[in-house]
Simulated assay, not measured.
Amino acid sequence: MIKYIDMHCHCHEYSVEELSRFIGKNISLVCVSDDPVSSWKTLELKKKLGITPCIGIHPWEAHKYSEKHAKEIVELAVKNNVKCLGEVGLDKRFVSKTYDRQLRIYEIFLKAAKEYDLVLNLHTAGAWREVYELLVKNDINRAYFHWYTGPLNLLDEIISSGYYIGINPAWKIQDKHRKVIMYASLENMLTESDAPYKYKGLELRPDYVIETVEYIAKVKNIQVEHVLLKINDNYEKLFKSPL
């Protein structure tokens, strides 16, 4: 059975029982982490539920950690055969005061992604250009821009570089994201929830990816099944492995 994919979920904030219910709805979860503690929790969820784990340090948490902590997370990823670092990246919109620390930590994850051929599950708020240019500079092959709301002209460059963007249920209330969905090619889309984040009264949930697939199909005037197949294909290309 072809699965729905949630490419960016903070699974460590849910109970195992709650996650099991989402998985029971035929949703495959890619679980991101915020810091060392949640990275360990995500690895435990991999053992219990078979989710796809991403471990890292969120830019919002960067002020609490050093390059040493980032290197320890890289070591943890390699030791546990984790193929994805996330949530990692840069943020100039919400936490610009810690940008220098964010950058030092992000550069460690960039080097690791290059050395070990890892996926980067990226936070890029207000720093879309900076994140992208560092990917190119470091010759990164596999990257995913979570909940993309950046400039459309940069989107052209992201797509031409073979990177992927996240389509989030925020399309329900966010006009900027709806424009991205209209503009972007299905060839470079993946669905996500960013659950359990609350955005302007919208409580994001993994099962909203089902409605998101339906919305993409409507916007692109194609069959839901075709969107679902392509999202699965994109996941497999990004991770170089089947679900």
Rank of each mutant, 00 (worst) to 15 (best):
Ile2Thr: 10
Asp6Lys: 02
Cys11Glu: 04
Glu13Cys: 09
Tyr14Lys: 14
Glu18Met: 13
Phe22Glu: 03
Asp34Glu: 13
Asp35Ser: 07
Asp35Asn: 13
Pro36Phe: 07
Ser38Met: 08
Thr42Trp: 02
Pro53Lys: 12
Cys54Leu: 10
Gly56Asp: 00
Pro59Phe: 01
Trp60Thr: 00
Glu61Pro: 02
Glu61Trp: 01
His63Cys: 02
Lys64Thr: 06
Tyr65Pro: 15
His69Gly: 08
Val78Leu: 14
Lys83Ile: 10
Lys83Glu: 14
Cys84Met: 04
Val88Phe: 02
Gly89Trp: 05
Val95Cys: 03
Tyr99Pro: 07
Ile108Val: 05
Lys111Val: 13
Glu115Pro: 09
Glu115Trp: 09
Leu122Trp: 03
Leu122Val: 00
Leu122Glu: 07
Gly126Ile: 01
Trp128Met: 06
Glu133Met: 06
Ile140Lys: 06
Asn141Met: 14
Gly150Leu: 01
Pro151Gln: 11
Asn153Leu: 10
Leu154Cys: 09
Glu157Ala: 14
Ser160Asp: 15
Trp171Cys: 12
Lys172Arg: 12
Gln174Leu: 14
Asp175Leu: 06
Arg178Thr: 06
Met182Gly: 15
Ala184Leu: 15
Ala184Trp: 05
Glu192Tyr: 13
Asp194Glu: 10
Lys198Pro: 05
Tyr199Thr: 05
Glu214Cys: 04
Ala217Ile: 09
Val219Ser: 02
Lys220Gln: 13
Gln223Met: 07
Val227Arg: 07
Lys230Asn: 13
Asp233His: 07
Asn234Ala: 00
Glu236Met: 11
Phe239Met: 04
